[in-house]
Simulated assay, not measured.
Amino acid sequence: MKLLCLLTLGLMLLSAIAPARGAELKIDLGHGVTTYRTETLLARHDVRTIDVPGDVAFHRAMRYRAVPLTALLEGIGTGDHLQFVAGDGFAAEIPAALLLNRQGSEAWLAIEDPTQPWPALGKDHGHAGPFYIVWTRPQAAQVNPEQWPYQLASIRKLDGVAARFPAILPDPSLPADSAVQRGFVVFRHTCFACHTLNGQGDARLGPDLNLPHNPTEYLRADLLRAFIRNPQSLRQWPQAKMQGFDAKTLSDADLDAVLAYLRHMAGRKAVH
């Protein structure tokens, strides 16, 4: 019994002094999956310490050890499309043209060091690690908050959203400058990372926005607007994951447009 206790104590001490194991990020650009581990990324020659003044997830200035994202995406072109999948079911769709922009915005893969973990996010929002896409000078290329995926698990090069999910497309006869078509663009940028529509999409964080019922069918327009701006104003639920979109993030005009798109899609339900 004494020997067993000594062995147990020894194992506990070893586990306490053993280095913390890192996480894995999988990247597939169409030529097979490349797996990057935390310790490998932190040891790269191009890793930098960067300051992010207005961090989207933490709502304050943050400092990270990070690698330029494009350094991990060699070979992508401006016509390519990438999907960033998080461990919580969030799936951000980002065109490669944004990552390759020449306006001065730069995307970085922030890497959480297990020995120096990042602080927790706000109440009931979990943790941002192990990997997080952050931007320096995001305003220059009009990067929106849904293009800062955290808890990142994988990056994949895929066909664009329209090609993969035709059931989310509005009526093609509508003019390109219509409110519905504009709303479709806004929807892709702000809603599709969390929600599916007509059963299509890869996000698993929020409910489908057209099946069985579209929110425009059961919420008054003023209540739906209030919910999008501040979900807690309609239903107080501490565990809710949806965060509101203020006027700086989603202008009144864009909010009008996405509601026009949703109303339009209420008449274009997929048949299952």
Rank of each mutant, 00 (worst) to 15 (best):
Y218F: 14
E112P: 07
F192N: 00
D256R: 00
M265Q: 14
T216A: 09
A140H: 12
K157S: 05
T78M: 05
M265N: 07
Y261W: 09
D252L: 02
V67C: 00
L205T: 08
P53H: 02
R102Y: 00
L25G: 00
L41G: 00
P212R: 05
M12K: 00
L205R: 10
D202F: 01
V180K: 02
L174N: 08
H81G: 01
H125P: 04
R156Q: 14
W237L: 08
R65D: 13
Q232I: 04
V185G: 05
L29N: 03
A247N: 13
A86N: 01
Y150T: 05
L6W: 13
P149Y: 02
L3Q: 14
G22S: 10
P172Y: 10
D177Q: 12
R156N: 11
G160E: 13
P231D: 04
K248Q: 14
F165W: 15
R137H: 15
R156G: 04
G199Q: 12
I168H: 01
M62Y: 08
L41D: 10
R220F: 06
K248E: 13
H264A: 06
L169G: 02
H272P: 14
G10V: 11
G79K: 02
L4V: 14
T35D: 06
G244H: 05
P119Q: 04
A203E: 11
D124F: 15
A16H: 12
Q142K: 09
T190F: 15
F90L: 09
